[in-house]
Amino acid sequence: ATNIVGKVKWYNSTKNAGFIEQDNGGKDVFVHKSAVDAAGLHSLEEGQDVIFDLEEKQGKAYAVNLRIK
């Protein structure tokens, strides 16, 4: 899926990971530091509006192509 709108639920820069809550009510999506880095960002803030694509690896959904809304 592409161009999904959501809000950062939480992001821990020590653990280099967090979750994004989908505005469409879907399951929360894992976001890794690699996606944050690829977006040219240093970190994510709780409640921040984002747009992202979903990629599945080994049955788990990940946020990729992250951008700030």
Rank of each mutant, 00 (worst) to 15 (best):
A1I: 12
A1V: 12
A1E: 09
T2S: 10
N3S: 08
N3Q: 07
I4R: 12
I4M: 11
V5K: 15
V5L: 13
G6Y: 01
G6T: 01
K7P: 01
K7W: 08
K7H: 09
K7N: 04
V8W: 07
V8S: 00
V8K: 00
K9I: 06
K9N: 02
W10E: 03
W10R: 04
Y11P: 01
N12Y: 07
N12K: 08
S13V: 13
S13T: 12
S13C: 13
T14Q: 13
K15R: 12
N16F: 10
N16L: 09
A17N: 09
A17D: 03
A17E: 10
G18D: 00
G18L: 05
F19V: 12
E21A: 15
E21C: 13
Q22M: 13
Q22E: 04
Q22C: 14
Q22G: 07
Q22H: 08
Q22P: 15
D23M: 15
N24P: 06
G25F: 07
G25L: 07
G25N: 09
G25M: 07
G26R: 09
G26T: 07
G26C: 09
G26N: 09
K27Q: 11
K27R: 12
K27Y: 09
K27G: 10
K27P: 15
K27V: 11
K27F: 09
K27S: 10
D28N: 09
D28Y: 11
D28H: 09
V29T: 04
V29W: 04
V29D: 00
F30K: 04
V31C: 02
V31H: 00
K33M: 06
K33F: 09
S34H: 09
S34F: 10
A35Y: 04
A35F: 04
A35R: 03
V36P: 00
D37C: 14
A38Q: 09
A38M: 09
A39P: 01
A39V: 05
G40F: 06
G40K: 07
G40W: 04
G40C: 09
L41P: 02
L41K: 03
H42L: 13
S43Y: 12
S43C: 11
L44W: 02
L44D: 01
E45P: 08
E45I: 14
E45S: 12
E45Y: 15
E46R: 15
G47Q: 04
G47P: 01
Q48G: 04
Q48D: 09
Q48R: 06
D49E: 15
D49I: 15
D49K: 14
V50S: 00
V50W: 01
I51M: 10
I51S: 04
I51L: 09
F52W: 01
F52I: 03
D53F: 03
D53K: 02
D53V: 03
D53L: 02
L54P: 00
L54W: 05
E55C: 14
E55W: 14
E55N: 08
E56R: 12
K57Q: 10
K57D: 08
Q58H: 14
Q58G: 14
Q58F: 13
Q58E: 13
Q58D: 14
G59M: 04
G59Q: 05
K60Y: 11
A61C: 13
A61R: 14
A61E: 11
Y62T: 07
Y62P: 01
Y62E: 05
Y62M: 08
A63S: 02
A63T: 02
V64H: 04
V64S: 06
N65E: 03
L66I: 13
L66E: 01
L66V: 08
L66T: 01
R67T: 05
R67P: 02
I68Q: 06
I68Y: 07
I68T: 09
K69D: 11
K69V: 14
K69R: 12
K69A: 12
